[in-house]
Computed example of a mutant assay.
Amino acid sequence: MTIPAFGLGTFRLQDDVVIHSVKTALELGYRTVDTAQIYENEAAVGQAIEESRIDRNELFITTKIWIENLSADKLIPSLKQSLTKLRTEYVDLTLIHWPSPGSAVSVKESMLALMAAKEAGLTRQIGISNFPIALMKEAIEAVGVENIATNQIELHPFLQNRQVVDFAKQQGLHITSYMTLAYGEALKDDVINAIAEKHQATPAQVVLAWAMKLGYAVIPSSTKRENLASNMAATDLTLDQEDMASIAALDRQQRLVSPEGLAPDWD
Protein backbone atom coordinates (compact mmCIF):
# COMPACT_ATOMS: atom_id res chain seq x y z
CA MET A 1 0.00 0.00 0.00
CA THR A 2 1.26 3.43 -0.87
CA ILE A 3 -0.14 6.88 -0.13
CA PRO A 4 0.96 9.69 -2.48
CA ALA A 5 3.22 12.12 -0.66
CA PHE A 6 1.51 15.21 -2.03
CA GLY A 7 -2.09 16.01 -2.82
CA LEU A 8 -4.90 18.54 -2.72
CA GLY A 9 -7.09 19.13 0.31
CA THR A 10 -10.64 20.45 -0.08
CA PHE A 11 -11.66 21.23 3.52
CA ARG A 12 -13.94 24.29 3.72
CA LEU A 13 -14.15 24.59 -0.07
CA GLN A 14 -17.57 24.17 -1.66
CA ASP A 15 -19.54 24.66 -4.87
CA ASP A 16 -17.82 26.73 -7.58
CA VAL A 17 -14.86 27.43 -5.31
CA VAL A 18 -13.94 23.76 -4.92
CA ILE A 19 -14.67 23.04 -8.58
CA HIS A 20 -12.22 25.76 -9.59
CA SER A 21 -9.61 24.60 -7.08
CA VAL A 22 -9.75 20.95 -8.14
CA LYS A 23 -9.80 21.67 -11.88
CA THR A 24 -6.91 24.11 -11.58
CA ALA A 25 -4.89 21.68 -9.47
CA LEU A 26 -5.47 18.86 -11.94
CA GLU A 27 -4.39 21.14 -14.81
CA LEU A 28 -1.17 21.84 -12.89
CA GLY A 29 -0.44 18.14 -12.46
CA TYR A 30 -2.00 17.25 -9.12
CA ARG A 31 -3.35 13.72 -9.12
CA THR A 32 -4.40 13.25 -5.47
CA VAL A 33 -7.60 14.80 -4.09
CA ASP A 34 -8.82 14.52 -0.49
CA THR A 35 -12.46 15.11 0.43
CA ALA A 36 -14.96 13.93 3.07
CA GLN A 37 -18.66 13.34 3.53
CA ILE A 38 -18.95 16.18 6.06
CA TYR A 39 -17.29 18.68 3.70
CA GLU A 40 -20.48 18.56 1.60
CA ASN A 41 -18.41 18.96 -1.55
CA GLU A 42 -18.10 15.41 -2.88
CA ALA A 43 -20.51 16.11 -5.74
CA ALA A 44 -18.63 19.27 -6.74
CA VAL A 45 -15.30 17.43 -6.52
CA GLY A 46 -16.74 14.66 -8.68
CA GLN A 47 -17.93 17.19 -11.23
CA ALA A 48 -14.50 18.86 -11.36
CA ILE A 49 -12.74 15.53 -11.81
CA GLU A 50 -15.11 14.41 -14.56
CA GLU A 51 -14.82 17.71 -16.42
CA SER A 52 -11.03 17.50 -16.23
CA ARG A 53 -11.20 14.27 -18.27
CA ILE A 54 -8.18 12.70 -16.61
CA ASP A 55 -8.01 8.92 -16.73
CA ARG A 56 -9.37 7.51 -13.45
CA ASN A 57 -6.33 5.25 -13.14
CA GLU A 58 -4.10 8.32 -12.83
CA LEU A 59 -6.02 9.68 -9.85
CA PHE A 60 -5.93 8.96 -6.13
CA ILE A 61 -9.20 9.98 -4.47
CA THR A 62 -9.73 9.91 -0.71
CA THR A 63 -12.97 10.37 1.18
CA LYS A 64 -13.85 10.03 4.86
CA ILE A 65 -16.82 8.44 6.61
CA TRP A 66 -18.67 10.80 8.94
CA ILE A 67 -19.51 9.77 12.52
CA GLU A 68 -23.22 9.26 11.74
CA ASN A 69 -22.26 6.56 9.24
CA LEU A 70 -19.76 4.52 11.23
CA SER A 71 -22.03 1.61 12.14
CA ALA A 72 -21.97 -1.63 10.18
CA ASP A 73 -25.40 -1.02 8.67
CA LYS A 74 -24.65 2.53 7.53
CA LEU A 75 -21.01 2.63 6.46
CA ILE A 76 -21.23 0.87 3.10
CA PRO A 77 -24.49 2.55 2.02
CA SER A 78 -23.00 5.94 2.87
CA LEU A 79 -19.83 5.14 0.95
CA LYS A 80 -21.92 4.12 -2.07
CA GLN A 81 -23.61 7.54 -1.87
CA SER A 82 -20.17 9.17 -1.79
CA LEU A 83 -19.13 7.20 -4.89
CA THR A 84 -22.26 8.36 -6.72
CA LYS A 85 -21.48 11.98 -5.83
CA LEU A 86 -17.83 11.55 -6.83
CA ARG A 87 -18.88 9.92 -10.12
CA THR A 88 -16.56 6.97 -9.63
CA GLU A 89 -16.96 3.25 -9.06
CA TYR A 90 -14.37 3.24 -6.28
CA VAL A 91 -12.18 5.52 -4.19
CA ASP A 92 -8.53 4.83 -3.56
CA LEU A 93 -8.72 5.45 0.16
CA THR A 94 -11.55 5.61 2.69
CA LEU A 95 -10.93 6.83 6.23
CA ILE A 96 -12.89 6.94 9.44
CA HIS A 97 -12.97 10.73 9.75
CA TRP A 98 -13.26 10.88 13.54
CA PRO A 99 -13.60 8.11 16.09
CA SER A 100 -17.20 7.60 17.20
CA PRO A 101 -17.83 10.03 20.11
CA GLY A 102 -18.14 8.19 23.38
CA SER A 103 -17.44 4.94 21.51
CA ALA A 104 -21.11 4.85 20.48
CA VAL A 105 -19.87 2.66 17.62
CA SER A 106 -16.83 0.58 18.42
CA VAL A 107 -13.62 0.99 16.43
CA LYS A 108 -13.81 -2.73 15.65
CA GLU A 109 -17.28 -2.45 14.11
CA SER A 110 -16.26 0.48 11.90
CA MET A 111 -12.98 -1.08 10.82
CA LEU A 112 -14.64 -4.39 9.93
CA ALA A 113 -17.23 -2.46 7.89
CA LEU A 114 -14.40 -0.64 6.11
CA MET A 115 -12.75 -4.00 5.37
CA ALA A 116 -16.03 -5.23 3.92
CA ALA A 117 -16.15 -2.13 1.72
CA LYS A 118 -12.63 -2.87 0.52
CA GLU A 119 -13.48 -6.51 -0.18
CA ALA A 120 -16.51 -5.33 -2.17
CA GLY A 121 -14.26 -3.18 -4.36
CA LEU A 122 -15.70 0.13 -3.19
CA THR A 123 -12.32 1.33 -1.89
CA ARG A 124 -8.79 0.23 -2.68
CA GLN A 125 -7.39 1.06 0.77
CA ILE A 126 -8.78 1.93 4.20
CA GLY A 127 -7.49 3.98 7.10
CA ILE A 128 -8.20 6.21 10.06
CA SER A 129 -8.11 9.89 10.95
CA ASN A 130 -7.80 11.74 14.26
CA PHE A 131 -6.98 8.51 16.11
CA PRO A 132 -4.87 8.75 19.28
CA ILE A 133 -2.68 5.82 20.34
CA ALA A 134 -5.34 3.93 22.32
CA LEU A 135 -7.73 3.91 19.36
CA MET A 136 -4.95 3.14 16.88
CA LYS A 137 -4.33 0.00 18.95
CA GLU A 138 -8.01 -0.93 18.67
CA ALA A 139 -7.97 -0.41 14.90
CA ILE A 140 -4.84 -2.53 14.52
CA GLU A 141 -6.32 -5.27 16.68
CA ALA A 142 -9.50 -5.24 14.58
CA VAL A 143 -8.04 -5.58 11.07
CA GLY A 144 -4.24 -5.77 11.36
CA VAL A 145 -1.83 -2.93 10.75
CA GLU A 146 -1.17 -4.20 7.23
CA ASN A 147 -4.73 -3.21 6.32
CA ILE A 148 -4.51 0.37 7.65
CA ALA A 149 -3.02 2.63 5.00
CA THR A 150 -2.61 5.78 7.10
CA ASN A 151 -3.68 7.81 10.12
CA GLN A 152 -4.52 11.34 8.99
CA ILE A 153 -3.84 13.72 11.88
CA GLU A 154 -3.31 17.40 12.59
CA LEU A 155 0.42 17.87 12.29
CA HIS A 156 2.38 21.05 11.71
CA PRO A 157 5.53 22.75 13.06
CA PHE A 158 3.68 23.87 16.20
CA LEU A 159 2.01 20.48 16.85
CA GLN A 160 4.40 17.72 15.83
CA ASN A 161 2.37 15.00 17.54
CA ARG A 162 5.47 13.00 18.41
CA GLN A 163 3.83 10.39 20.64
CA VAL A 164 1.35 9.39 17.94
CA VAL A 165 4.02 9.53 15.24
CA ASP A 166 6.47 7.43 17.24
CA PHE A 167 3.82 4.78 17.95
CA ALA A 168 2.77 4.73 14.31
CA LYS A 169 6.39 4.30 13.20
CA GLN A 170 6.87 1.41 15.62
CA GLN A 171 3.84 -0.27 14.07
CA GLY A 172 4.80 0.54 10.48
CA LEU A 173 1.74 2.77 10.11
CA HIS A 174 1.94 5.72 7.71
CA ILE A 175 1.01 9.28 8.76
CA THR A 176 -0.81 11.89 6.69
CA SER A 177 -0.50 15.46 7.94
CA TYR A 178 -3.46 17.79 7.71
CA MET A 179 -3.42 21.48 8.68
CA THR A 180 0.29 21.31 7.79
CA LEU A 181 0.54 25.10 7.42
CA ALA A 182 -1.29 25.67 10.73
CA TYR A 183 -4.02 27.82 9.17
CA GLY A 184 -1.25 29.95 7.68
CA GLU A 185 0.36 30.72 11.06
CA ALA A 186 3.47 28.71 10.14
CA LEU A 187 4.04 31.03 7.17
CA LYS A 188 4.58 33.97 9.53
CA ASP A 189 7.21 32.25 11.68
CA ASP A 190 10.67 33.86 11.67
CA VAL A 191 12.54 30.54 11.66
CA ILE A 192 10.57 29.23 8.71
CA ASN A 193 10.96 32.50 6.83
CA ALA A 194 14.73 32.43 7.37
CA ILE A 195 14.91 28.89 5.97
CA ALA A 196 12.76 29.99 3.02
CA GLU A 197 15.11 32.87 2.29
CA LYS A 198 18.11 30.56 2.52
CA HIS A 199 16.63 28.23 -0.12
CA GLN A 200 14.97 30.96 -2.19
CA ALA A 201 11.69 29.20 -1.49
CA THR A 202 8.34 30.21 -0.01
CA PRO A 203 7.52 29.56 3.67
CA ALA A 204 4.74 27.18 2.54
CA GLN A 205 7.21 25.19 0.43
CA VAL A 206 9.54 24.92 3.44
CA VAL A 207 6.80 23.58 5.75
CA LEU A 208 5.48 21.12 3.19
CA ALA A 209 9.00 19.93 2.33
CA TRP A 210 9.70 19.48 6.07
CA ALA A 211 6.65 17.25 6.50
CA MET A 212 7.39 15.19 3.40
CA LYS A 213 11.04 14.72 4.39
CA LEU A 214 9.75 13.20 7.64
CA GLY A 215 7.77 10.71 5.56
CA TYR A 216 4.32 12.23 5.97
CA ALA A 217 1.84 12.79 3.17
CA VAL A 218 0.52 16.36 2.88
CA ILE A 219 -2.76 17.67 1.44
CA PRO A 220 -2.63 21.50 1.40
CA SER A 221 -5.57 23.37 -0.09
CA SER A 222 -5.72 26.64 -1.99
CA THR A 223 -8.10 28.51 -4.23
CA LYS A 224 -5.37 30.45 -6.06
CA ARG A 225 -3.55 29.06 -9.09
CA GLU A 226 -0.21 30.58 -8.09
CA ASN A 227 -0.39 29.05 -4.62
CA LEU A 228 -1.42 25.66 -5.97
CA ALA A 229 1.57 25.72 -8.32
CA SER A 230 3.92 26.99 -5.63
CA ASN A 231 2.81 24.36 -3.11
CA MET A 232 3.39 21.61 -5.66
CA ALA A 233 6.97 22.82 -6.12
CA ALA A 234 7.63 21.81 -2.50
CA THR A 235 8.20 18.30 -3.80
CA ASP A 236 11.44 19.56 -5.37
CA LEU A 237 12.76 21.31 -2.24
CA THR A 238 15.28 19.44 -0.07
CA LEU A 239 15.93 20.75 3.44
CA ASP A 240 19.19 19.99 5.26
CA GLN A 241 19.65 18.64 8.78
CA GLU A 242 20.05 22.12 10.23
CA ASP A 243 16.74 23.20 8.69
CA MET A 244 14.98 20.12 10.02
CA ALA A 245 16.40 20.62 13.52
CA SER A 246 15.30 24.28 13.52
CA ILE A 247 11.73 23.36 12.62
CA ALA A 248 11.71 20.48 15.12
CA ALA A 249 12.41 23.05 17.84
CA LEU A 250 9.21 24.96 16.99
CA ASP A 251 6.94 22.30 18.50
CA ARG A 252 4.75 23.78 21.24
CA GLN A 253 1.88 21.27 21.17
CA GLN A 254 -0.46 23.94 19.81
CA ARG A 255 -3.55 22.06 18.68
CA LEU A 256 -5.84 23.98 16.34
CA VAL A 257 -8.51 21.33 15.71
CA SER A 258 -10.28 19.83 18.71
CA PRO A 259 -14.06 20.09 18.30
CA GLU A 260 -15.97 19.79 21.55
CA GLY A 261 -17.99 16.61 21.70
CA LEU A 262 -16.05 15.13 18.80
CA ALA A 263 -12.37 15.10 19.74
CA PRO A 264 -11.02 11.95 21.45
CA ASP A 265 -8.65 12.01 24.41
CA TRP A 266 -5.49 13.28 22.71
CA ASP A 267 -2.01 11.97 23.51
Rank of each mutant, 00 (worst) to 15 (best):
N130K: 06
Y39I: 03
A117S: 11
K74G: 04
R56D: 05
K80W: 10
W98R: 04
I153W: 04
S82G: 05
I148E: 10
T84A: 15
T32Q: 06
L26Y: 00
V105R: 05
S129T: 15
R124G: 09
E68K: 13
V107T: 15
L95F: 08
M111C: 10
T88D: 13
G121W: 06
K74N: 09
V143I: 15
L83D: 05
K85L: 09
P77K: 06
M111Q: 13
E51P: 02
Y30K: 06
S106C: 09
Y30H: 04
K108L: 09
T63F: 03
G127N: 14
L28H: 12
S100I: 07
T84R: 14
V91I: 06
I153Q: 06
Q81V: 12
Y90R: 08
M111V: 09
I61E: 00
V45H: 00
N151R: 02
G102L: 11
E138N: 13
E89N: 15
I140N: 08
L83P: 01
A117N: 01
G29R: 15
R87M: 13
S100T: 07
A149C: 07
T62M: 07
Y90D: 10
L75K: 00
G144V: 15
I38A: 08
I128S: 03
E50N: 14
A72P: 08
V33K: 00
N130S: 07
S71P: 02
N41Y: 04
L122H: 01
L26K: 00
Q125P: 02
Q47H: 12
F131L: 15
S100G: 07
F131K: 03
L59E: 05
D92Q: 01
S100K: 04
F131N: 03
F60S: 01
Y90M: 11
L59P: 04
Q81D: 14
E51S: 09
A120V: 05
F131Y: 08
E27A: 06
A139D: 04
T63E: 04
R87A: 14
N151A: 03
F60H: 02
Q47V: 02
A120F: 13
A36C: 14
A44R: 01
E58Q: 10
E138D: 13
K74A: 12
T123L: 01
K137P: 06
L86C: 05
A44L: 09
A134L: 12
N130M: 10
P101W: 03
G29Q: 09
K80Q: 15
K137V: 09
T62E: 11
T63V: 02
L93Q: 05
W98K: 09
E27R: 05
E109R: 06
K118W: 06
P77M: 10
Q37F: 07
P99R: 02
I61S: 00
T84D: 12
E68C: 15
K108W: 11
G121M: 10
V145Q: 15
T35R: 02
